[in-house]
Amino acid sequence: MKGPLMRIFALKSCDTCRKAIAAIRAAGHDPQVIDVRADGVSDEDRAAILKAFGHKAINRASTTWRGLSDAEKESDPNDLLAQHPTLMKRPVIDHAGQLYLGWKGDVQAAILG
């Protein structure tokens, strides 16, 4: 395994998450994968993710988001993610103490070099 432990908060049914995990493993990393639906997200991790990304941590394009009432959509992001972990934009990658959101080119460059 290269360097410090890498953790990926993902959803096993998410295509982007699967692509990210495959690319990261192909680059020689052995990340710990945390399935947000099956494993949940700890209070500490959720707080760190929200501190790093704020409202951007919420996936407003998701089926879960569309199913929420207007009142629910206005609630505190921490409460929303605690009740609906699949609302988290994915993947969130914790690499060497730095958090990354999504799997676009800038994140790929930072993670894969």
Rank of each mutant, 00 (worst) to 15 (best):
D106C: 04
E44V: 15
L11Y: 08
A26N: 11
A23W: 00
A20T: 06
G105Q: 14
L68V: 10
I58F: 03
D35I: 08
S42D: 09
P91S: 11
R66A: 12
H84F: 07
D15M: 04
P4C: 09
M88P: 02
D43N: 12
A61K: 14
T16D: 08
A61P: 06
D70Y: 01
L81W: 01
L5A: 14
L68E: 04
S69M: 09
I34M: 01
L112C: 09
I111T: 02
G102N: 08
A22L: 08
T86D: 10
A26S: 12
P91H: 09
Q98K: 12
R25N: 11
V33E: 04
E44A: 15
G67D: 09
V33L: 03
M88R: 01
M1E: 12
A26F: 02
I34N: 00
E44M: 10
L80C: 11
I58G: 00
Q32I: 09
R7N: 09
L80Q: 08
K104A: 12
H84A: 12
A10S: 15
H95T: 06
L50T: 15
A38Q: 14
D45R: 06
D43M: 03
G105W: 00
V33C: 02
Q83W: 06
I24R: 01
K73A: 13
A61S: 15
I21K: 02
A27E: 07
